[in-house]
Design a protein around this nucleic acid. Structure first.
Length: 209
DNA sequence: AGCTTGATCGTCT
DNA sequence: GACGATCAAGCTC
C-alpha cells in the first residue's frame, strides 16, 4: 500500500517542499467514492518576505493555518465562488505553504466526471487549476486545517511514483503580480493537466521584490 | 461603514 | 480574447 508523506518533506523550505510534492498523490473520500490525484503543478508561498503571500502582512484569522505545523490544509475562498487549497509547510509559528494547482486523476475517472461536468469528458480538465482541483476533491472551508498526513483524515497525501529532475519545470507564479521574478511555480513537463501559460499575464519587470 | 481587489472559472463573442 | 459572477479580507475614511 502507498505510505503517507512524511512531515520532514515539508518542514525545511517551501521550494524544496513544492518540488517534493510533485508526483505525490492526494486521496479524498467524496460522496461518489474515492478520488486519487497525482500532483503535477504547485506553487510555493512564504510569509513576510513574500509579497505574493496571504501572510505577507502578518497573521490574521483567515491565514492562521498557514502559520501552524506542516501537513495541514490551508483552504481559502476567492472570487465569490471558488476554493483553493494549500499544504502548509515550515515549522509551527512560521508561515509557509504550497498551493495545489493541478493534478492527474489516477482513480476511476467516472466519479470524477460526475463531480466536474464542465470538464466535458476531458480527463486533463478534471483538476487543471486550483479551484477545479478543489471542486473535484470536494475541498471547501470545512477542510481548512485538516491534517493530510494523518491516516484517519478523509483527505490524505501519499507517496507516489517519483518525478525525475529532468521532468520538472519552474516559472513565475500564476496570477501573482507581486514577486513576479520568483520562479516559485513547479510543474511536470508534458502533463496535459498543467495550467496553460498565459503570456498576457507576465510582468517580468515589476518594481516589487 | 464603505470600497477595492483577488493564488479563478465558465461562458460568450 | 474578454467579461461577469459573487463575496470576504483587508484597507481607507
Amino acid at each position: 500500500m502507498a505510505s503517507l508523506l512524511s512531515a520532514d518533506a515539508l518542514r525545511d523550505d517551501v521550494l524544496g517542499a513544492a518540488r517534493r510534492l510533485l508526483g505525490t498523490e492526494l486521496v479524498a473520500e467524496v460522496p461518489e467514492g474515492e478520488v486519487r490525484l497525482r500532483l503535477v503543478e504547485v506553487e510555493a508561498y512564504r510569509g513576510a518576505d513574500d509579497p505574493g503571500s496571504h501572510c505577507h502582512r502578518g497573521r490574521t484569522a483567515r491565514n492562521a493555518v498557514m502559520w501552524g505545523p506542516a501537513g495541514r490544509l490551508y483552504v481559502y475562498f476567492v472570487y465569490g465562488m471558488h476554493f483553493c487549497a494549500n499544504v502548509v509547510c515550515l515549522q509551527d509559528g512560521v508561515a509557509g505553504a504550497v498551493l495545489l494547482r493541478a493534478g492527474e486523476v489516477l482513480s476511476d475517472t467516472g466519479p470524477a466526471h460526475v463531480r466536474r461536468p464542465t470538464a466535458r469528458g476531458r480527463d486533463a480538465e478534471l483538476a487543471r487549476g486550483p479551484a477545479r482541483l478543489c471542486t473535484l476533491l470536494g475541498l471547501d472551508r470545512q477542510h481548512n486545517g485538516v491534517d493530510v498526513l494523518d491516516p484517519t483524515s478523509s483527505v490524505r497525501l501519499e507517496v507516489g511514483e517519483a518525478v525525475a529532475d529532468a521532468d520538472v519545470r519552474t516559472g513565475p507564479r500564476v496570477g501573482v503580480a507581486a514577486g513576479q521574478q520568483r520562479p516559485w511555480r513547479f510543474w511536470v513537463a508534458g502533463s496535459p493537466a498543467v495550467t496553460p501559460y498565459k503570456a498576457g499575464r507576465a510582468r517580468p519587470d515589476g518594481p516589487d521584490w
